[in-house]
Design a protein around this nucleic acid. Structure first.
Lengths: 194, 194
DNA sequence: CTTTCTATAGACCATATGGTCTACATCGGG
DNA sequence: CCCGATGTAGACCATATGGTCTATAGAAAG
């Protein structure tokens, strides 16, 4: 429970956030259709009533919000990694380190939030919109960073990085290790990146 | 029904293959957990009995075989694209064209067979093995091509290409267009690839 | 105290799902 | 003509799933 603003109005951000966090984690592990509501509810230790109170749209809405929320977290992580970089390649190397560290602490190694939701986008169009929104937002952030750091073709750089990141994430899930990000980071340090 | 070899033994490869094809298509569209057996059966126009005769292991076995089979198809496609290439970058550009062409003919644009199965690998470990097998096999093929074409770091090249391809495929699904592969191909032509 | 609004609690339901099992069709060989 | 092998047909089942609905708890406001 958390008091918001100066009003004494009590807002249960905790439980809503708890649902988002549990959902995000489970979706990344098993994909949208691979997770049952009961499982999310159990992880968050909340009854069904809470879920449908906070997310009247049910599983779809929960997944959408969880994806957008996870997307923002990754985005902040990108900004932070690039902040102190002297070049685009340095920024990428730093970001790869951050993701690799993160993945090393996960078992199983979880998929990219976007990838985990995208699978279901054929049956749930709303999810594709969420995935697209996040990817667009990541791309824009990367374009800005590339431009700021003097990259000659910021748009190409952003596209390429997005591909490499998503690909590396998929390989990491397959191998259940952070190696792909370590190797990608190394390549950027060697100057073999984009 | 198809006669195989000179023996007059009748082998119903058709129905088994039909199941594999329908399954592969649907899994790529909706992911492993997003497809019901009934749907696959309907697409192949076969009853449940046939499925469990050809694949006693049920959905898992069907998905495993479908993934391995689809993996081999992609692998042959890679070999063909690189065959007449004068450099690794040229081969990649050619392969991007092939995939882009292919995706343009699909609606919806379907995910990579590996990606579509990998989501479910947490609950179905057998699927992770299939995904890994395919990825390893692709990687080995790419290493050979890179070495043959005189790439200075064949292993790095293969890794990088795998990341870019999987990433581009994910972006293509999100955008529902072949653009990502067109752009990746362009970059290889411009020499901005690996 | 009572009312009202927020949020939790979970029983309940229609439907979908993967899987099993028995019956049967077809065909080559004896 | 029958027989065994291969493969098809689909009824049937236990279970799981997303979603709805009513009841209730607790704080804030009057």
């Amino acid at each position: 429970m958390v008091y918001i603003g100066q009003k004494k109005r009590m807002v249960t951000l905790n439980n809503r956030d708890s649902l988002l966090r549990s959902a995000s984690l489970l979706f990344r592990q098993k994909g949208y259709h691979g997770v049952a509501l009961a499982e999310i509810l159990k992880a968050a230790d909340l009854p069904k009533g809470s879920l449908y109170y906070h997310f009247p749209g049910g599983k779809r809405e929960l997944a959408t919000e969880a994806t957008l929320s996870a997307g923002r977290i990754v985005e902040r992580s990108v900004s932070r990694a690039f902040e102190s970089a002297g070049s685009f390649a340095q920024g990428m190397a730093a970001f790869c380190d951050v993701v690799a560290d993160r993945l090393r602490s996960e078992s199983p190694v979880e998929a990219c939030p976007v990838a985990s939701i995208l699978q279901a986008s054929t049956s749930e169009p709303e999810l594709r919109d969420a995935a697209r929104t996040v990817l667009t937002s990541w791309s824009e952030g990367l374009v800005l960073q590339a431009a700021r750091l003097g990259h000659p073709a910021p748009h190409d750089a952003a596209d390429m990085v997005l591909m490499q990141m998503e690909g590396a994430w998929l390989l990491a899930v397959a191998e259940q290790s952070a190696r792909p990000f370590e190797r990608l980071g190394e390549m950027y340090r060697k100057g073999t990146g984009i």
